[in-house]
């Protein structure tokens, strides 16, 4: 974009200037944005890393490898991977049903998919406890159990894969599938060889987001987990109890691990997007 500036005094009639708010204005804008983001986001996060590493690598390492912290981090990772895997399969399946199937009530089903994003996380936990808690009418008590925590994580991560895959599936050209079918390909072969490769980038992106959300979730798990160390305590809940007992060093150390994991997922997503753009 080239900005042409003309001196109004040069011509007989003032030439309208093509102004782009660049120069000093741009510098001011960038400065403002950078300082705002620094104060609101960067500085606080840097404070965590500083607190965690302030007493050297040894202190950091011993804080994240205490039996309780290590158990919480391990549980967080395992649950995150499980939740991501379930979402990859079931999320794709739900997206498929929403796009390729027709049945009464489909529109309602499509609308409630977003509910977990709109619902406060503490309400999500409470809602699950109503059906799967100690007073369960179906006699399925998941309270204070790892399966309960997993159910809570599945609840809050539900929309990620569905909403990533759905638009791609809508745009997908049916002609390729029809051609394969006319050549005698089995239905499953068509799905595996033609549909799935086209959906894969969307599934991967949705799954990565679901994983990132699952390892950081707090509100939905807090009621259903009962915060039992070594059993149902995930990393975010562990951080919370360390803050409550004023042990900010331990809390900051575990937080740093979560931050690094979040950063890794974000970078992986960006790399995937760039790869996708290059392919297209």
């Amino acid at each position: 974009m080239t900005a042409t500036t003309a001196d109004p005094a040069a011509g007989p009639r003032p030439t309208p200037r093509l102004r782009r708010p660049g120069g000093a204005g741009l510098g001011l804008g960038v400065g403002l944005a950078t300082s705002y983001l620094s104060v609101v986001v960067l500085l606080p996060l840097a404070a965590i890393v500083a607190r965690a590493s302030g007493h050297g690598w040894g202190r950091f390492w011993s804080a994240v490898t205490t039996p309780e912290a290590a158990a919480a981090l391990r549980l967080t990772l395992v649950l995150g991977l499980l939740v991501a895997a379930v979402n990859a399969v079931v999320g794709t399946l739900i997206a498929w049903v929403l796009v390729r199937d027709e049945f009464p009530g489909k529109r309602v089903m499509d609308a409630i998919i977003d509910l977990p994003f709109a619902l406060p996380t503490i309400v999500a936990g409470l809602v699950l406890l109503a059906l799967y808690g100690t007073t369960s009418p179906v006699h399925l008590n998941l309270a204070y159990a790892r399966t309960g925590v997993m159910a809570a994580l599945l609840f809050v991560t539900l929309p990620f894969v569905v909403r990533a895959v759905q638009p791609v599936l809508i745009e997908l050209d049916r002609e390729m599938e029809e051609a394969a079918a006319s050549l005698g390909a089995e239905r499953f072969t068509i799905f595996r060889r033609i549909v799935l490769p086209n959906l894969l980038p969307a599934i991967a992106a949705g799954t990565a987001l679901a994983f990132a959300r699952a390892i950081s979730e707090f509100g939905a798990t807090v009621l259903i987990s009962g915060n039992l160390p070594f059993k149902t305590e995930v990393a975010s809940v562990q951080i919370f109890s360390q803050i409550e007992s004023d042990n900010t060093l331990a809390a900051a150390a575990v937080s740093t691990v979560l931050l690094l994991a979040a950063l890794a997922v974000l970078l992986a997503l960006q790399a995937m997007q760039r790869l996708g753009v290059r392919r297209a």
Binding site: L37, S216, A235, I239, S255, L266
Partner: peptide, 24 residues
């Protein structure tokens, strides 16, 4: 860098956000 930084809050655990503010 700014573009990437802006997305960070969505990936950070809410508890970590709270701790970060306490530390500042």
């Amino acid at each position: 860098l700014l573009d990437a930084l802006v997305d960070l809050p969505l990936a950070v655990s809410p508890v970590v956000v709270g701790l970060a503010l306490i530390l500042v």
